[in-house]
């Protein structure tokens, strides 16, 4: 499942970069995040309860940030499993200055498996996109929207 999007943030690229690397910001903006524990450099142990309405699953796994090129680019890898199945995602975040703000492009390839993939395909793509969108929307709110 390939997803992508762009957001415009009303903060200079360096600020955006710092926020994107701030565990506290990740904690606040990741939908359904229950727990985020730094277990190594750029490596986190995470527990998420995500889904929509009554359809929620708890996943625990790891989140890794790699290929860091401050302040423009990093890659993020996420792997988790739980009762409703598992998910595995890889994506990249690219920043570029735009006026006084910053243009953020994100793209990712998320694989969802097990129960939720088998019975939830009708909404899976849309919900996945929505959740990622929520994350960046939250960043926008923290940093102020550029649009």
């Amino acid at each position: 499942m390939k997803l992508d999007g762009t957001n415009t943030l009303a903060a200079p690229i360096e600020t955006v970069w710092t926020t994107l690397n701030d565990p506290e910001a990740l904690r606040r903006c990741t939908p359904g995040l229950q727990e985020l524990k730094e277990v190594g450099p750029d490596t986190y142990q995470a527990t998420l309860t995500i889904g929509i309405a009554a359809v929620k699953g708890t996943y625990s796994g790891t989140l890794r940030i790699t290929d860091k090129q401050p302040p423009r680019h990093y890659r993020i890898a996420l792997e988790g499993s739980g009762g409703a199945g598992f998910m595995k995602g890889e994506g990249s975040v690219d920043l570029e200055p735009q006026g006084n703000g910053t243009l953020l492009r994100w793209s990712g390839d998320v694989q969802v498996g097990g129960l939720i993939a088998g019975v939830g395909q009708r909404m899976l793509g849309g919900v996945g996109k929505m959740l990622i969108g929520q994350f960046f929307k939250c960043l926008e709110q923290r940093l102020g929207s550029g649009t």
Binding site: M1, G114, A117, G118, V119, Q121
Partner: peptide, 16 residues
């Protein structure tokens, strides 16, 4: 019977 590229079955109910 739909499968994704990682061979996850996507149609495991009679809804799909």
């Amino acid at each position: 019977l739909a499968y994704d590229e990682q061979a996850q079955p996507l149609s495991t109910t009679f809804m799909d």
